[in-house]
Amino acid sequence: MGTFCTEALADDMDPEDRTRVRDAPRSATGREWEVFVREDADGALQHVGSVTAGDADAAHDRASDLFGWTARDVWLCPADETRRYTAHTLGEPAGGESA
């Protein structure tokens, strides 16, 4: 159902309706890595969250612990190199001040 909804919305949506999520740090204890997995050779690559790890190999280890039982392929993207654009907004960020 999630897929249909997303596609229906995407058809109707003006790119202007999406805003870029600000590049706020996603972890204060290490680097954050977006995790994508593919379950079967012909399946779609799916975003399944993120892990905190010092480097890509450590992130792969963490993701494998979590998803090794179901994933065939695992892709990792540094969250701070990933630009996210969404129709969802969460209100005003704190700006320069501490929250």
């Binding site: 740090p25 954050e32 969250g49 993120s50 905190t52 790890a53 969404t86």
Partner: peptide
């Protein structure tokens, strides 16, 4: 504190996603 959603409060090393997204 940065909006990451976790499976429990102790499970900070993995996040389902972020509430800003």
């Amino acid at each position: 504190y940065q909006g990451n959603v976790h499976l429990t409060q102790f499970w900070q090393g993995y996040s389902l996603g972020n509430v800003r997204d």
